[in-house]
């Protein structure tokens, strides 16, 4: 590493003037605060799921409903999408190449859609096996937790589409860059939440 101050990747902050850097840091800090507020929401959904583990009401449980293959595919899709977003960030920071940024964003979007597709497929499969959300408190909490994550990913996908359009329209100016930076934080954060979901919900359910 060079002796330079390390900055958030994605912006060549050391080449910007001090005012732009301050503004960017302010915006990013605000976004981190939002993410932490979101984290509380997720953590309470996790806690609700935890309190509902025994609330099967005679309905089917994880072993009857979960398919480890689907969960695995969703995990790989999301991990790869996080990596491809990283590539978009690198292209933005070092190459200043809007085309390459758009390509990587498209790849990320595709992987996000694969994730969502499998998740919907998985939900339909579960409902077909007699496990709709109205069947028991346990299933309500499962669908609320995993569904909330899915909704976040959906919002992320819409955001990616918006950003592809903005890169095309405005190029990689500061405003677009800070937005991509925030989108990146959002996307990587959702990945962290997914790690919690596949561990606490799917794997724990199939073991316990």
């Amino acid at each position: 590493m060079s002796g330079q101050v390390k900055q958030h990747p994605g912006l060549n902050l050391h080449r910007e003037d001090a005012e732009t850097r301050d503004q960017t840091e302010e915006v990013l800090f605000g976004f981190w605060v939002f993410l932490m507020s979101d984290l509380v929401l997720f953590s309470l959904l996790f806690a609700t799921y935890g309190t509902m583990l025994h609330s099967m009401a005679g309905g089917p449980g994880p072993k009857q409903l979960f398919d480890i293959r689907n969960a695995g595919i969703e995990t790989v899709a999301l991990l790869l999408s996080t990596f491809s977003f990283g590539q978009a960030s690198l292209a933005m920071k070092y190459d200043d190449a809007p085309g390459r940024v758009q390509t990587w964003l498209l790849v990320t979007l595709g992987l996000g859609l694969v994730f969502l597709g499998y998740e919907i497929y998985d939900f339909v499969d579960m409902i077909g096996k007699g496990g709709p959300p109205s069947r028991s408190g346990y299933l309500s909490s499962f669908f609320a937790l995993v569904g909330t994550h899915g909704l976040h990913v959906t919002c992320g996908c819409v955001w990616i589409i918006v950003m592809i359009a903005q890169v095309r329209m405005f190029g990689l100016d500061t405003l677009v860059k800070t937005r991509l930076l925030r989108l990146g934080l959002f996307w990587h954060f959702l990945d962290v939440m997914w790690v919690g979901i596949f561990s606490v919900v799917y794997l724990q359910g199939l073991v316990g």
């Binding site: 984290l39 509380v40 953590s43 309470l44 806690a47 609700t48 935890g50 309190t51």
Partner: peptide, 11 residues
């Protein structure tokens, strides 16, 4: 810390 308090406390 807050998450541990809130989620852990709930459980």
């Amino acid at each position: 810390c807050i998450v541990i308090l809130m989620a852990g406390g709930t459980l």
